[in-house]
Design a protein around this nucleic acid. Structure first.
Lengths: 215, 215, 215, 215
DNA sequence: TATGAATGAGAATTCATTCAT
DNA sequence: TATGAATGAATTCTCATTCAT
């Protein structure tokens, strides 16, 4: 729908934009697959179907490209979180929805996890300077705080829960399982990526969080 | 035992062993700091105080060196886990101890986290082939299973808890917070590495897990 | 005359001329600052406030642009020399005036020195083919020859002085000091660019040349 | 003579040294021919008969190699100047010898001129930090000061001559003619590099300087 | 007249790895 | 056992220049 702007804009602009997007998309794949250090600009060019030279033309350097990719990834998940509308739901349902959303998002966006791992290896140097990431995040924390408070008032949830800690816990329970799936599968001698295993993990996560919250 | 200095063997041999250990230690630092891809063999040599050439002499390739380092890291944590003796404790205490141990170990061994991240980026190709990692891990799972069962029988813990899931949850709650500390600190606009923040996280983690387990 | 704004021609054409001049001026700066090899066409475009593409549109290639810039620089100094009117002066005054002119010109046009250095690095390949440079230069040599002859006849100057050698000496005494000012300042541990130092150099130069010429 | 150290040292060391010298020599040629910016590391490798990689192995970067080459060039001329022993000569002979030496040195070491031009284009950034260049130069200035003073006392030379200015003048008269020979030849429509022209220039230079100095 | 898009051919520099001793 | 010397194959990035409009 938002792809159809009826009045086709100047094809010049379009091409440039399309190329840049193709590069960003290719870079996302490449960084996701190989991390920042392991990514190859050649391969990004190939994947995008453009000359390697264009990557530098539009993004200046590999590192800067990483920055853009990372920030877009953040923007995307924040945008998705914003569409959750947790405030409209009963507290327990809101938390359940957040858990399911987080789980699904990480499952469907494995690039996001790799990107974050790379960024943490580099001590968040590409984000910290970036435009208002905090602002992008806080809304959810505030929403979660409200949900927790509502739950507490209703007598459903325990009190004294820090929404930031809770958010990190929900994320961590999903993130670690998915991001470290390969080593965990080996360590426990089980394939932890089968549909069944994934389903069990989500159930477990939900039980842990709600089991903790609900009094 | 193999530290016994009484029967001093040929100094040559001892030097050889010492050199290899220096290389392993240096490699651990380097891989921890930069990941597998970002690590530089030159720097490993420098850090170990030996010629870069020796790294190849003893370990053949950077990748193989990584394999050795990774496996040693695994052996170390498994060894530490083995010293926990959870079976001697009351169920809740055993779980609490496991949580605290996991947290402390990750906190004091950040290399381990980076190593695992690298290994997962490479889809566990360096462990999977390695010597009996499963065997090294299962004991703890079995112990945890026993603890859970004891707790359930005592009426303290809920039933139906998969020890593997629980173990992963305990690890994940600590791992994600520590491994992604840099981006989380930026995202939430809080320094999550202060002593106070670290203490709060451990408390929260314990509450979540025990709040979930205890009926 | 070609600055006359009354008969405003088609604005298109005027813009074209203005653009070309802007490019030439920008190129002069850039070549002066970085030499032929170090100059960047992008930067010339930027400096001129036009698209880099225009540089090629109007001048074909970087090298050709250099040729134009260089020739304009030569035309400018020749034009300035022509305005000296040495023939109207007493011989010693004429020589003094030439020395002062040369000094001031080099001091105020450091680009000219850099341009010449570049051109000499390239063995004068951009000038030699160019339109009648010799013709542009000879007038001054002829004038200087006359001055010398007048001085000799008056018994003021020594005889047997080759005007070309003298011209090169006057230029060299100024050129070397200014062009190599940076290394000389380091070598002698003195800042040779202070107003005082510059003034002293001009005095010295004048004394050397006149001390030599005057019998 | 100083090549024959009788007890052949370890061939390993020798090779390394020889290689480094080969690279320095090749670099000198390349920088002389093309300036710092125009020089190509590939070509330096080729000229030295070694892999381009070795250039970086031994010198780190092109710029650093330039620094070494430049400093060696300075050391060489300072060393040659030191062998002049001007103090042993009559004042006028000492000055004449300095002029002839400077002229010959520049004539036989055109690389030195190109190197200096490059260095001045870069505002002496590669020397300024270098080891005691001032110290290397001052001896000559002091010697020249003594010569001038002796000449003045003898009533041969005029007084009040700054040795630094004089040194720069002697250098400048030779340097400009040789360094700018290409453009000057075109400008004056004469080949200024023929043996005859060179000889005339040296005579002229000597006459200018001595004509100025001798009262 | 003017330009943004695009590029091929290099440029310096890096890196794991082998050679010779 | 130990190592300094040497390198080929990338890898990021640069630059003058052309294409299409």
């Amino acid at each position: 729908m938002h792809e159809d702007l009826t009045t086709t804009p100047s094809p010049r602009l379009r091409d440039s934009e399309r190329t840049q997007r193709a590069i960003l998309a290719a870079a996302l794949d490449e960084f996701a697959e190989s991390g920042l250090g392991g990514a190859r600009v050649d391969r990004i060019g190939e994947r995008a179907g453009v000359a390697k030279r264009l990557v530098f033309y539009y993004f200046g350097s590999k590192e800067n490209l990483f920055r853009e990719v990372l920030n877009e990834a953040y923007r995307n998940i924040r945008e998705a979180e914003r569409r959750l509308h947790l405030s409209d739901l009963a507290p327990a349902d809101a938390v359940r929805k957040l858990i399911e959303f987080t789980w699904s998002y990480y499952l469907e966006h494995p690039e996001f996890l790799t990107l974050l791992n790379s960024e943490n290896l580099h001590r968040a140097k590409h984000i910290s300077s970036s435009t208002g990431l905090q602002d992008l995040n806080s809304p959810l924390v505030q929403t979660l705080a409200d949900v927790l408070e509502r739950g507490r008032k209703d007598g459903v949830f325990r009190g004294g829960v820090d929404p930031v800690q809770l958010y990190i816990s929900i994320a961590g329970l999903a993130y670690f399982y998915l991001s470290n799936n390969a080593t965990l599968s080996v360590a426990f001698g089980r394939n932890l990526r089968t549909p069944k295993a994934l389903h069990e993990r989500l159930s477990h996560t939900t039980e842990v969080i709600l089991g903790y919250l609900i009094r």
